[in-house]
Amino acid sequence: MNDTIVEARNLIKHYKDLNALDNVNLSLSANRIYGLLGRNGAGKTTLMSVLTAQAFATSGEALVFGANAYENDAVLSRICFIRESQKYPDDFQPRHAFRSAALFYKNWDQGLADRLAADFQLPVKRRIKKLSRGQLSAVGVIIGLASRAELTFFDEPYLGLDAVARQLFYDRLVEDYAEHPRTIILSSHLIDEVANLLEHVVVIDRGRIIMDADAEEIRGSAVTVSGSAEKVDAFLAGRKILHRETLGSLASVTVDESLGSRERAEAQELGLELSPVSLQQLVVRKTMAGAGGAGHTAGTGDFSDDTLEARR
C-alpha cells in the first residue's frame, strides 16, 4: 500500500541563468493525494515534467515505478500528466481527445468522462482551439480523472474555472479517488481550496523543496499570537518566529511551533489571542521567510492575489 512509486534524487534542472530545480530530493508513496504547492515559477511544472520524462534534468535521477520513465512504455502507460498549457491537435474536439486517451489508458472510464463533460457543461463537439480557458481546463481535468492512471498529475487544473466548476472538480476527485485509490499529485497555488483534500504536502520555492510533510502534521503546527506587542514578544521570547506584524502597539506574530495546553492557558491569562494558521498562510509565511524576510514588507501576502495572477 505504501510502496514508493516516485523517487527523485538530487534533481537539478538548469536553464540559462536559472535553477528551475535546485537539488530536489523527493519520495512519494502509492495511493495518496499529494499537494505540490508553490508560487508561479517555483518549479512545480518543471518537476512534474522531469518526473514524467517530458523534460530532461540537467543532472540527478528520477525514478517512477522503479525506473526512468524516458521512452519506457511500461512506466509511461501508468502515468497521466496533462499540463496547464496542454496543446491538442488542430482539428480535435474534446470528444476526440477523450477517445484518444481511451486508446492509451487501460482503466479509462468513458462513462465517467461523459458524466464529467455534462457536469462541466463542456461542448464536446466544438473545436478545442475555440474553447474558453475554463473549458480547456475542463478537458484536461476530464482526461486526468477518467484515465484512472496509477500516477496522475493535475497541473493547476482550475485555471479559468469558476468557483462552482472548481468545487465540482474537487468533489469528483474525492469521490472517484475514494472508489479507485491511486496517486494524485495536485499542483496548485490556490492552497486554501485544496488543503483538506491533501494527505501530504510538498512545497517548492525557487526550485527547492522547503516543506515535505503530512498535511495532518502541519495542521496545528503553527499558531498566530496577537495582542499588545510587549506581551506578545515577552510570551514568545526564544521561539521560532515566522512572521511578525504590528499595528500601533498591537502585534500579531506567527510562530512555527504548536503550544501546549498550559501555554495556551498562560496566553489566555495574559489576554493574548491565539488563532490557527491555515496551510495557505503557513506556506506563504515559509516562502517569504525563505525570501529573506520579505514578508515583513509584503504584508498579508496571498498566493492567489492579483499581482501573482497578473504575471501569468
Partner: peptide
C-alpha cells in the same frame, strides 16, 4: 462510511478513515 464522510466534508478519504 469513510468515503461518505470524505465526500461530505470534502476531505481526503484516508484522513476520514483515520
Amino acid at each position: 462510511s469513510t468515503n461518505e464522510f470524505a465526500a461530505f466534508h470534502r476531505i481526503n478519504p484516508a484522513t476520514a478513515a483515520k
